[in-house]
């Protein structure tokens, strides 16, 4: 059923980029594509359990998204995993810098992965960066 591999690299902590990354990952995953997501830099903090921080928006669209019934990006990432078997990898470097362990991250994330392994796994797929 798979029709190509999509690798989504998420580094931004702003709402519009997190939302678009989550949409690409979830729709691709439920359409039968293999999906790998790599969370690093400012994106990872939203996946720390108990973090209620709201992602700031960059412009008009982000403000509108926040005020309308748009699926939350974290819900979409979780659905990408549950409905479409996407794999979401937290960046081990970002975890070290944040000082967070695997148990401190949302349960639907895979084990920490370094950039070398992610690049190897992404070698035969499209790479989308947000």
């Amino acid at each position: 059923m798979a029709s190509g591999k999509i690798c989504v690299v998420v580094v931004s902590g702003t709402l519009e980029r997190l939302q678009m990354a989550a949409m690409v990952a979830s729709v691709a995953a439920v359409s039968g594509q293999d999906v790998l997501v790599f969370l690093s830099m400012n994106a990872l903090t939203y996946f720390v359990k108990g973090n209620t921080l709201k992602a700031p928006h960059e412009g008009e669209m982000g403000g509108l998204i926040a005020s309308k019934k748009v699926p939350e990006f974290k819900t979409l990432f979780e659905q990408a995993v549950e409905l479409g078997d996407a794999k979401i990898y937290p960046c081990s470097m970002a975890m070290d810098i944040l000082g967070v362990e695997q148990e401190g991250l949302e349960g639907y994330l895979e084990n920490a992965t370094g950039l070398t392994k992610f690049l190897h796994d992404a070698n035969d797929g499209q790479i989308w960066t947000f």
């Binding site: 439920v30 019934k69 979409l76 659905q79 409905l83």
Partner: peptide, 18 residues
């Protein structure tokens, strides 16, 4: 109704699974 893309699609997929 009331949800934005890809909300209705995700709700459909949940329903299809069941």
């Amino acid at each position: 109704r009331g949800s934005f893309c890809p909300g209705p699609l995700m709700e459909l997929i949940v329903a299809l699974k069941a």
